[in-house]
Structure formats: C-alpha cells, structure tokens
Design a protein around this nucleic acid. Structure first.
Lengths: 135, 135
DNA sequence: GGCACTGTATTAGTTGGCTAATACAGTTGG
DNA sequence: CCAACTGTATTAGCCAACTAATACAGTGCC
C-alpha cells in the first residue's frame, strides 16, 4: 500500500491515513469501486491498532469518499459529498484564502501565487488524466 | 477590536486569534508598526485568560508577524519570516494542494477552481491596495 | 518612588483526542 | 456449520493541548 505514516509529523495517524487516501482518490490513483485494504491488513502494515484504521475509514465514509460493506470490505465510492454549490465554493474558498494569507506572509507576490496555484492544479489534475487511461 | 471568538468552532481560542490577526495583516487592515491591543486588554475583551492571548502573540512573534517590547506593547512587524524561496514555495504549495484535493472531492472542475482562486486572491490582495491608500 | 501600564513565568487542573485491548457481529466458501 | 475473513462496539488509559490562577518583571510618567 502507498500509505506512509510519519510519526514525527504531529498529525494524528488516522488523519494521515485520511489525507493520503483522499489525495490518492483525487489524483485518480484510487478509482471508483477500487477496494481498500481491510482494516486489519492496513493496521498490521502500519503497525497500528485496527481501530485507528477504522477511525480513518469512518471519517472517509462520512465525507463520502468510501463506502463499506460488512464482511466484504471497503471501496472507493462513486460520488462525493452532498453539499450545495454555494457551500462547496465556500469551503474551497476558505482553504484557498488561508493559503493566500500564508503566501502573503511569506512574501510571495501575486504572480508567484498564481504560479504556485497552477503547479498545484497541475500536480493533482494531470495525474488524474493519466490514470484514467492507464491502469 | 476586530477579533471574534467562536466557541463552537472547535479551533482553540489562541489559534483563532492568530489566524485572524494574520489575515488582518495580510489584508492590510493592520500595517507595519500598528499597535496591537495589550495582552490584558484583549484578554478582557474576549473574556479569556491573559496567557491565552500571550500564547497567540508568542506564536505570531515566532512567525515574524509581530514583535513585542516589554512595558511598551506589541506591534506589527515590518517583514516576515526567514525562509528560503524554495521553502516558501513548498509551504504554500502544500496549502494549495490540500485545497485542490478538497475541491476535487467536492466536484469542482478546473475552471471553477480557478475562479475560486481568483476570488480568494482578489479578496485578500485588493483589500491591501485600498488600505495602503486609505486609513 | 510609586502607580499604572506593558509582557512573562510557573504551576496546575481539566478536558478531550488518540490509540489500544478485547470482545462482538455480519458474510462467504469449504 | 465452522473457519476465516470482513467491519463494529466497548472500555480504558495515556498524554498532550489548552486554559486559567497567580505571582513576577520591565518601562515610563507623574
């Protein structure tokens, strides 16, 4: 599996799992209906209690990223999140504003910010394109 | 003062203070050498222990956003952050990538993301412009 | 010098987050 | 039906984060 836990990161384990799976899905490395490792498998692999993995999977389920079937396993779900257009924009806006505030404090000018944004977009979106074909 | 604490936000009080002051500085609502309210003043206003405010100010000082002078007060500092160009970009990149991942999960397409980014940029940067003149 | 203002240090208590141990429950194939 | 796999529930403990009480220390003005 592609998940790496960094004990020194300060971020709780379950959040690291959540974040990495979300990123993998966003990038298309995990696609709809793909199976995730079982709670126990991943727990062993990460040397962590099954409940910790379960906690991560629960969060992901609540966010609409995955779904679970008792006795079967856990899978990447087709669609995400029920939310009004307005809410979505607001949520993304909050994240982006935070990033911009940070960038201002770091002394980036507007052009540099645009470049950074393009790079981020490229990194996530271009991977999607490739994965869709390949695999 | 312009700070609002939301007890239901889940975010610790001191972080809310940090974040709001950082945003104010980034937007130019607070400018270099502007005085911040004293630890005690703000503590009273927010109905919070002085140490909580002090904690926020400490973080801001470490980040290079403000500086303090014993017996005098706390002020917005001129420059920010000592960090290599590379590091800055990396930091901002992390934030932006997180925002993009979120946006993908919320079903925004690339154009909508660009719009959202432009909006965020506009919101922060345009305020700066105005404040620089006005006040 | 003393009062009134600044920020600081020490200590301590509460709370909630995080993780783990362990036992329970659904599904499927031999 | 039993073994082997899924995810789930309960309980508990640890620990760090957060906040507060309180006392200390620097500066400046009357």
């Amino acid at each position: 599996m592609f998940i790496n836990i960094d004990p020194s990161s300060g971020l709780p384990i379950y959040m690291q799992i959540v974040q990495q799976i979300k990123t993998a899905v966003a990038m298309g490395r995990l696609q709809t209906e793909d199976p995730l490792p079982s709670v126990r498998q991943l727990a062993v692999e990460l040397k962590v209690n099954p409940n910790t993995v379960a906690r991560a999977y629960l969060d992901l389920e609540i966010e609409g990223v995955i779904y679970k079937r008792q006795g079967h396993g856990t899978f990447v779900s087709g669609q995400g999140v029920e939310m009004s257009k307005r809410e979505r924009r607001k949520t993304v806006g909050r994240h982006l504003e935070k990033a911009v505030v940070e960038a201002v404090h770091l002394g980036l000018d507007e052009e540099e910010m645009r470049e950074a944004f393009d790079a981020a977009l490229e990194k996530i979106m271009s991977a999607r394109g490739r994965e869709a074909v390949g695999k």
